[in-house]
Design a protein around this nucleic acid. Sequence first.
DNA 1: CTGCCAGTTCAAGCCGGCTTGAGGTCAATA
DNA 2: TATTGACCTCAAGCCGGCTTGAACTGGCAG
Lengths: 126, 126
Amino acid sequence: MPASTLRYYEERGLIASIGRRGMRRIFAPGIVERLALIALGRAAGLSLDEIATMFAPDGLPRIDRAMLHAKADEIDASIRRLTAMRDGLRHAAECPAPSHMECPKFQRIVRATAKGAIRAPGRAPA
Amino acid sequence: MPASTLRYYEERGLIASIGRRGMRRIFAPGIVERLALIALGRAAGLSLDEIATMFAPDGLPRIDRAMLHAKADEIDASIRRLTAMRDGLRHAAECPAPSHMECPKFQRIVRATAKGAIRAPGRAPA
DNA sequence: CTGCCAGTTCAAGCCGGCTTGAGGTCAATA
DNA sequence: TATTGACCTCAAGCCGGCTTGAACTGGCAG
């Protein structure tokens, strides 16, 4: 993890150094766990701001269970969308129709997407 | 869909107008289907550039089945990651441990994330 | 014929999450 | 002691996918 990221996180209030030696920041050993927690939040789709609210002023994790449930539900919805997309893609990849637009199944997927039932997620990770 | 989006897509080579009346662009009726296809691609996590390559110069969809399979696999991987995250979140929301960091399950998740097994996706859609 | 307003152009801005560049500091090594 | 190179600050840049602003044109209703 680049030092620039640590500085950025500090600036955003996600972490704090416990002092300086010369100009250099000194971090408490526990910072590593903290960073892991931040990474966890990011992986769960939380913004840095949301993550920041999960740390009490004293620095201890203060986790809002309702928020976690809400996030879990959100992820669930994403999973359903993605599952539909994946099935659609696989079908499209195998569909024998000469032109995809002639395949009823493909048409159905296209219509579903157009209706907004399925929306673009942030770019999927590689 | 805002007109600005159409102009942007035109600029990116995803759509083309069939003429002008005065300064105003005229689009063929089929443009709607085309836009639906673009939305479908976006929903599948394709970039506009990737989508552009899926249209042959003649404007007909030219779909690369291998690419679709690859995208489907990619989505599958995302689904697995998200599923793990969701389970982790739900657990965290219900875990009775006084501090989450004391819960072995939570620790395991944190470690897995730290190891890079789980990475931040683009922001999940609402 | 005139005025309105939806269209047009081009350049610039926005979002989040960092990264990068220029120019400066200083603890540790040889 | 001199050098090194990893850190420092601050501001600006990047990415994709659009949106927005200022300044304009021109088809159509009245």
